[in-house]
Design a protein around this nucleic acid. Structure first.
Length: 780
DNA sequence: TGATTCTACGGTCTC
DNA sequence: CGTAGAATCA
C-alpha cells in the first residue's frame, strides 16, 4: 500500500491523520492545503477503511472540485469507482440533493417539485425587470441590480419579505418589500430556484425533515470543506446540519484569503469555529512551498497591515529569488506594453514557464490583450462572456427550459418573440397584467386568455400559434427525446436557425457555429444517458473560472479568479488608488481590508517572479479623457529592499496602442495571432465524462472509464481502428472547420452524419465534433 | 410591429 | 468603449 504520510511535514501529517471530530486547518497560502485534503481522503479510504462514498468534500468552484477529484483518483487509483468519494461544489451538492430527495420540501415550499428550474443571474435580473413592469416602476430610483443584491443578502440572512415590511420606514423601503415579495412569489410560480435558494432550501429541508437529515448524516460520515473562509452563514448551517450526529468535519481555510465578503462570506465562520466546536482540533500550516522568500515576505508585509486576523507568519526554506519588479507606466497602454514586452522576453528565455497577468477588474484585460497581440503572444482570457451567456445560446437554452416547463415565465418571455412572430410589447404586457391579476404563471394566463377569446384577432392568431408551438415542444420534451434531437427540433420548428441563416451580418455565422457547438454538447450529454434537466443544471452551474486551461502560456484573469492557482510568473497590474484598492471600498475599513487580502492573494500566486505595475494616468473608458492616478497604498506597504524599480527597456516598442486600436481590432477579426479561445465546450465534454464515470459507480462498477480522452487534456492520439476507414471523413483526413480552421481527423466513432470525430486543430487542441453539425469541409 | 438609430449610462468580484 | 433601452421611422 502506498504511504500517504510520506512527503508531508509534521503539521500536514497531523492533519491527515486526524480522523474523528471537528478539525480546523489554518492553511497559509502555498502551504499544501489541497495536498492535505487529498491525502486525508486517501488516508481515510486506504488506512482507515472508510468507504469512499461516505466522504464528502466541498469546494467553491467546479474547477477546484475537478482538480481535487483528479488528484484523489491518482492517489487511491481510478480503477474502482465504488470507492470514489463525492467531491462537489456547494451548489452542485445541493442541486443533487434536491433532485434526488427533495420531495419533502413541497411541504415548506408550495408547488415545489424535483424538476425545478434554476435561475441564473441573468434570469433573476429579467425577473426583477418583469416585476418592475408589472408594478409600473421605473428603474432609475432603484436599480434592478442593487435590488437583486439586497434581496440576495436578505435571503442569506434568512430574512423574509415580511421582515422587510415590518422594518420599512420610508416608501422606498416598502417598495423594496413589495418587489421582494413578488420576486419570491414568481419564483414559486415558475417552480424555479435561484442560486441562493439552492442552498437555502436545502438547509430548510434538512432542518425540518429529520429523516432526510439522518439519512445524509449516515451517508456522509466525513465532511471536508475547502476555502472555508469564504463560506457564508447558510453554508455554515448546511455544514452543521450535515454533521449533527457525528461532527466529523474538517475545514480548511485562511482568513487572509477571505475575498468574498461582498457575497456574504462571513469571516466569523472561521474566527468562531473554535467557539462553535469546543473540542475542535486546530492545526496551522505555516510553511510555504510555493514562492520565493522575497515574494512571501512582500505579501506578508502587505497583509500584516490588516487588523482583523488571527495572525500568522509564513516561512519558507526557499531562497530569496529575484527581486520584485515594480514598473510605473505613464499610462495604461504603456503599462500593458511593458507587461507584454517583459512576457515576450521571459518566454524566450524560459519557454516552459506559465505566466499570469492578474487585475482587479475585467475591463483591464483589453489593453493587455492588445499589447500581447502586438507581440504575437498567445494568451487565454478567463472570465468575460462565457459560452452560456451568449445571446443565441441563452435563447436556445430558454427554449429548452420552456419546453421542459412552460411555467418558467422568464424563459418563456425571453423567446416569445424570438424569432419575431408578431407578438409585440403591447400584447405581452396585456398577458402579464392578466397573469398578475389572476396570480398565475404567464403560460397559464396566456392559455386562459386564448380560451376566453378576449384578444384582438391579430394577437389571438399569433399567440395561439405560439401556444401550439410550445405545447408541441413540451410534449417532445416529456416524451424523453434525446436532448440534441429536441434542440435540433427546436431550432427547426421555431425558425431560429432559419432566422440566423437568412441574416447576412457576420455575427450570425458565428452564432450558428455556437449553436452547433451547443448541439455537440447536447449530443454528448445524451450519449451519456443524461436527461434534459441534467443538461440544464450543468449549464447553470458552470462558472467562468472553470475555463482555465493549465497549459496556456499566458493567462489573463481577475485576482478573484486566480484564487487557488499558482504560476511561475505573475504580473499584478493596475495597482492604483481607486482601482486596487477599488474606489467602492474607500469609505469602509472592512472593505479596504478585503482589498488588501485580495492583493495578498494576488501576490502569493507567484512562484518565482512577481511584477507589480501601475500607470500614472488611465482613461476610464475608451474615448474619455485620461485621468491621472496615484500608486496604490499597497505598493508602499511592500518593503523597498525587496523591490527593484524597472524602467523602459530600449528594445521596447513605444507605439501608440490607442491610435492603432482600429487596426488591432481588424486583426482580431481575422483571427491572425490571437490565442484567445473560448473552450467551454471542452469543459462540458470533460464534465460529462466525469459525470458518466460517477454514474457508472452505481451501475457497472467494473466498467472501464469513459472512452476517449477528455478533449481539453493533452492526450496521445488514439489508436488506429479499422472502422475508421469507412465513410468520407476517415482518420488522417485534413479538414477545414469554419472556426478552428484546418485540422486533422484523429478518430471517428459511429457512421455517416452521426459520426463523432476527434479532430486536432493546431492552436486549439483536440475537439470532439459531431459530423452533422460541425460544418466540416474536406481540405484538398 | 419590427428594424434601425440614438442616447445615456456604467464599471468589482461569483455559484 | 460597449450595451441596453428609448426614440424614431418604415
Amino acid at each position: 500500500m502506498k504511504d500517504f504520510l510520506q512527503d508531508l511535514n509534521p503539521q500536514q501529517r497531523e492533519a491527515v491523520c486526524h480522523i474523528e471530530g471537528p478539525l480546523l486547518i489554518l492553511a497559509g497560502a502555498g502551504s499544501g492545503k489541497t495536498r492535505v485534503i487529498t491525502h486525508r481522503i486517501a488516508y481515510l479510504v486506504h488506512s482507515e477503511g472508510v468507504p469512499g462514498p461516505s466522504i464528502l468534500a466541498v469546494t467553491f468552484t467546479n474547477k477546484a472540485a475537478g482538480e481535487m477529484r483528479e488528484r484523489v483518483a491518482n492517489l487511491i487509483g481510478l480503477s474502482d469507482w465504488r470507492r470514489a468519494p463525492l467531491i462537489s461544489t456547494f451548489h452542485s451538492f445541493c442541486v443533487r440533493l434536491l433532485r434526488r430527495d427533495g420531495d419533502p420540501l413541497a411541504d415548506l415550499r408550495p408547488g415545489f417539485t424535483r424538476d425545478f428550474t434554476i435561475y441564473d443571474d441573468d434570469d433573476q435580473l429579467a425577473l426583477i425587470k418583469q416585476i418592475y413592469r408589472s408594478l409600473g416602476l421605473d428603474d432609475k430610483s432603484l436599480p434592478p441590480r442593487s435590488v437583486l443584491s439586497t434581496i440576495s443578502h436578505a435571503k442569506n440572512q434568512k430574512q423574509t419579505p415580511e421582515d422587510f415590511y415590518k422594518k420599512a420606514a420610508d416608501p422606498k423601503a416598502s417598495r423594496l418589500a413589495v418587489i421582494f415579495e413578488q420576486y419570491e412569489a414568481r419564483l414559486r410560480q415558475a417552480n424555479a430556484l435561484d442560486f441562493d435558494d439552492l442552498l437555502l432550501e436545502t438547509v430548510r429541508l434538512l432542518g425540518s425533515d429529520e429523516a432526510t437529515r439522518l439519512a445524509y448524516n449516515e451517508r456522509f460520515r466525513f465532511l471536508m470543506i475547502d476555502e472555508y473562509q469564504d463560506t457564508n452563514r447558510v453554508q455554515y448551517e448546511l455544514m452543521r446540519l450535515l454533521t449533527v450526529s457525528h461532527q466529523n468535519v474538517a475545514v480548511v481555510g485562511d482568513e487572509d484569503q477571505s475575498i468574498y465578503g461582498w457575497r456574504g462570506a462571513d469571516i466569523r465562520n472561521i474566527l468562531d469555529f473554535e467557539r462553535d466546536f469546543p473540542n475542535a482540533r486546530v492545526i496551522r500550516l505555516e510553511q510555504n512551498y510555493r514562492s520565493t522568500k522575497n515574494i512571501l515576505e512582500a505579501a506578508s508585509a502587505v497583509v500584516s497591515h490588516n487588523t482583523q486576523r488571527k495572525g500568522k507568519w509564513l516561512w519558507t526554506e526557499a531562497g530569496g529569488g529575484a527581486p520584485i519588479g515594480v514598473y510605473e507606466g505613464w499610462d495604461a497602454e504603456n503599462e500593458a506594453l511593458f507587461i507584454a514586452h517583459t512576457i515576450d522576453n521571459l518566454l524566450r528565455d524560459f519557454p516552459e514557464d506559465r505566466v499570469a497577468v492578474l487585475y482587479r477588474t475585467n475591463a483591464q484585460s483589453r489593453q493587455i490583450e492588445e499589447a500581447l497581440r502586438r507581440y504575437g503572444r498567445k494568451y487565454l482570457v478567463v472570465g468575460g462572456l462565457s459560452f452560456y451567456q451568449r445571446m443565441e445560446v441563452k435563447d436556445a437554452m430558454a427554449y429548452l427550459k420552456a419546453a421542459l416547463s412552460p411555467d418558467d415565465s422568464v424563459s418563456l418571455l425571453r423567446i416569445i418573440n424570438t424569432p419575431a412572430r408578431g407578438i409585440g410589447k403591447t400584447t405581452v404586457e396585456q398577458v402579464e397584467r392578466e397573469a398578475a391579476a389572476r396570480g398565475v404563471s404567464f403560460w397559464a394566463a396566456l392559455r386562459a386568455l386564448l380560451e376566453e377569446g378576449q384578444l384582438s384577432a391579430r394577437a389571438q392568431a399569433a399567440l395561439s400559434a405560439f401556444v401550439k408551438l410550445i405545447g408541441e415542444l413540451h410534449e417532445a420534451a416529456s416524451s424523453g427525446m434525446a436532448v440534441h434531437q429536441l434542440l435540433s427540433l427546436i431550432l427547426e420548428r421555431t425558425g431560429y436557425r432559419q432566422m440566423l441563416e437568412s441574416d447576412p451580418s457576420p455575427d450570425s455565422e458565428a452564432r450558428l457555429e455556437n449553436l452547433n457547438e451547443l448541439l455537440n454538447a447536447a449530443a454528448d450529454s445524451a450519449e451519456r444517458g443524461e436527461t434534459l434537466a441534467e443538461f440544464l443544471d450543468h449549464a447553470a452551474l458552470v462558472s467562468e473560472s472553470d475555463q482555465l486551461d493549465d497549459q496556456a502560456a499566458v493567462s489573463l484573469l481577475t485576482v478573484h479568479n486566480a484564487k487557488g492557482l499558482e504560476f511561475p510568473v505573475v504580473f499584478l497590474a493596475g495597482l492604483e488608488e481607486g482601482l486596487f484598492p477599488h474606489s467602492r471600498s474607500r469609505d469602509s475599513a472592512d472593505a479596504l481590508e478585503e482589498e488588501r487580502r485580495l492583493c495578498y492573494v494576488g501576490m502569493t500566486r507567484a512562484q518565482k517572479r512577481l511584477y507589480l505595475t501601475y500607470a500614472r494616468s488611465r482613461r476610464r473608458w475608451g474615448g474619455g479623457a485620461p485621468e491621472s492616478s496615484f500608486p496604490s497604498r499597497f505598493l508602499r506597504e511592500v518593503p523597498s529592499h525587496l523591490t527593484k524599480r524597472l524602467g523602459m527597456d530600449h528594445t521596447m516598442e513605444t507605439v501608440d496602442l490607442f491610435a492603432e486600436r482600429h487596426e488591432v481590432r481588424e486583426t482580431v477579426k481575422k483571427n491572425l495571432y490571437t490565442g484567445k479561445t473560448f473552450n467551454s465546450i471542452d469543459n462540458i465534454a470533460q464534465y460529462f465524462a466525469e459525470r458518466a464515470a460517477q454514474a457508472k459507480s452505481h451501475t457497472a462498477p467494473s466498467a472501464p472509464p469513459p472512452s476517449g480522452p477528455p478533449v481539453s487534456a493533452p492526450a496521445p492520439p488514439p489508436p488506429a481502428r479499422a472502422a475508421a476507414s469507412q465513410g468520407g471523413l476517415r482518420m488522417g483526413t485534413v479538414i477545414q472547420h469554419p472556426k478552428y480552421g484546418r485540422g486533422t481527423v484523429l478518430r471517428r466513432e459511429g457512421d455517416g452524419d452521426d459520426a463523432k470525430l476527434t479532430i486536432s486543430f493546431p492552436g486549439y487542441g483536440l475537439k470532439k465534433l459531431v459530423a452533422k453539425y460541425a460544418g466540416l469541409k474536406v481540405d484538398e
